[in-house]
Design a protein around this nucleic acid. Structure first.
Lengths: 133, 133
DNA sequence: GCTATTCCTATCGGATTACTAGGAATATAC
DNA sequence: GTATATTCCTAGTAATCCGATAGGAATAGC
C-alpha cells in the first residue's frame, strides 16, 4: 500500500548522486553503474527530471547532467511529482464532479486530509535533508 | 501517485453504510446496490473485512453483515490495512537487509518518515470521523 | 424442501510497470 | 572532418496487478 515506484526511487538516488558530485557533471551511464540502475531506464528518468527543471543536461562528448539548483532548494515533493505525478489518493481530489457519489460522498474529505498529510511531509523535506539523513 | 485502490474505497463506503443501518444487518447485495458497487466484488471485500474482525456476518436467510464495533472504535488505518495491506512506501521499510544498497541507503529514513506521516493520519481518524465529515 | 444469503475457488481482460532496443541529434577530440 | 561519446526520441515487451465475473458449495430461516 502506498508503494513508491522504482522510477521515483531511482530518480532520488540519481539526484543524490548528482548532489554529491557537486559542480561536476555526471553521465547517465556513470550514475547507472554507481547506483546499480538499468542504464537505458535511467536515461528516461533523467529526461523527466530535466523536463521538470530539476537537472540540466549537456550533450555530446564531455556532456552529462548536473543539479539545476542546490540540493537544499529542491523539495522532495517536486521530485516525486515529476516522476510519479501529483499525490492523488482518489480520482476526485481535484474534481468533485468526478465523484460518482455526487455531493453525498462522505469519505472525500478524509482522502483530502490524507493528501494534505502526504503533501505536507513531502513539501517539508528537501534533497539536502535526504542526503544528511 | 499514492492512489487508493477501489477495493479500499468500496470497503469504506460499505462500512459507512453499515454504520448508518445501525444495529440492523445489511446484506452484501443490498449494500452493493445502494452504493453502486459490483455485487460479486463486494462479497470478497466484506469477506476480508470479516477476517480482519471489522464486521460480523450471519449467513442463510435473514443473514447479512454488521459492524463488529462502534464506528468510533474503528481507526481508519485498520480498514486500509485490512484491504490494501500495511503502508509500505518502499520494500525495505521493515527489513533493512532487503535494501539493495546495504547500509549505505540514504533515502530509507526519508521513506520511513513518509510512512510515519501516513500512518499517523490514518491512525488518528476513525470511521465515525469519516461519517461526520 | 425451498429460498436467500454468506463463503470458496478460479478465471479473465485491461492497464500499468520496469525494462529493452534501435537509432537520431549533438558536441567534443583528434 | 571523421570518429566517438553522450543526450534524446520512439517503440516494443514480458510480467504483474486490479477490478470484475462465474459458478457453485455451505448454511440458516421459512
Amino acid at each position: 500500500m502506498f508503494s513508491v515506484s522504482m522510477k521515483t526511487q531511482y530518480g532520488i538516488r540519481a539526484l543524490v548522486h548528482l548532489a554529491r558530485t557537486g559542480s561536476d557533471s555526471a553521465t547517465s551511464a556513470e550514475i547507472a553503474k554507481a547506483e546499480g540502475i538499468s542504464p537505458k531506464y535511467l536515461e528516461g528518468i533523467l529526461g523527466q527530471l530535466k523536463a521538470a527543471g530539476l537537472v540540466t543536461a549537456e550533450r555530446g562528448q564531455k556532456g552529462g547532467y548536473r543539479l539545476a539548483r542546490a540540493a537544499a532548494e529542491i523539495p522532495m515533493i517536486e521530485i516525486v511529482g515529476a516522476l510519479d505525478g501529483q499525490v492523488k489518493p482518489v480520482l476526485c481530489v481535484d474534481d468533485s464532479r468526478s465523484c460518482a457519489q455526487g455531493g453525498g460522498c462522505l469519505p472525500r474529505r478524509f482522502w483530502l486530509g490524507l493528501k494534505g498529510a502526504i503533501d505536507g511531509y513531502l513539501a517539508s523535506r528537501t534533497l539536502q535533508d535526504v542526503i544528511e539523513g
